[in-house]
Amino acid sequence: MDAGEVVGIAGPNGAGKSTLIAMLLGLLPPSDGTVRIDGVAPRAFVEREGVAYLPELMNLPLEWRTAETLDRLATLGGIAPAARVGARERVIEATGIAEHRGKKLKQLSKGNLQRVGLAAALLAERRVVVFDEPTHGLDPVWTARFRDIVSGLRRSDRAMVIASHNLDELERLCDRVAILDKGKVQQVVTVRGIDGANTVSVRRWRIRVVSGASVLAGLVPGAKVDGEIVECECDLPAMNRALAAAIAGGALVGAVAPVESSLEEAFRVSVTR
């Protein structure tokens, strides 16, 4: 992957996502092939620059307190003593954990623990960011905030890897998604264009046409009509052209809903091979 890219890793349980991330951190050697970050072995890269990392579960001694945890990780992260308090307060503010700063990690809920992990990952500026199931345990509000934070982390010299079960999340955040199964990349799906616009080609559609369903069905090859419902397969631009033509031809469209995105379809096909 290139700098500036956000690459997702999708896969069922046991597909090898966390193993791949352990290899990216240089904690496990590959059984075959090589892993390189910026031309060097992952461990050498991490020891030189560090990686912003958020695991699925915050694994740190639970007797540590929130502020202490961030102080420790800021120290390990090489943040200068004079800048540590500022960095700590910045990430506490960004992740909304001020009220938990004095609590031990074992006193925190799963969601708050995950926010501490996110705060830790944001402490230092890193060129490589690795998130492993980052929204695990987060409530919907913080899941949305997390997406904003990830969007804010996009930078032309930064590469981000996000492993997740959540295809919708990957589709929103990533440029490309690698679908992993049985320890191998089965397929790589492009979900964003260079300009950042989502170019996922939604393939299957369900459209409620109040009147003139046959007009729309006649414009999309293979479309099936069942009363007011038209089901068809085509990409996003073709869908728009067909709808515009159908409306111009007198059709009254009530609702348009994607049944399955190309990412979901690719995932389903890849992991059931």
Binding site: R48, E49, A52, L60, L76
Partner: peptide, 14 residues
């Protein structure tokens, strides 16, 4: 065993 290494050694530490 508890996975602390993943967090501790994502930092630029030998």
């Amino acid at each position: 065993e508890r996975g602390h290494v993943r967090f501790l050694f994502a930092a630029p530490v030998v």
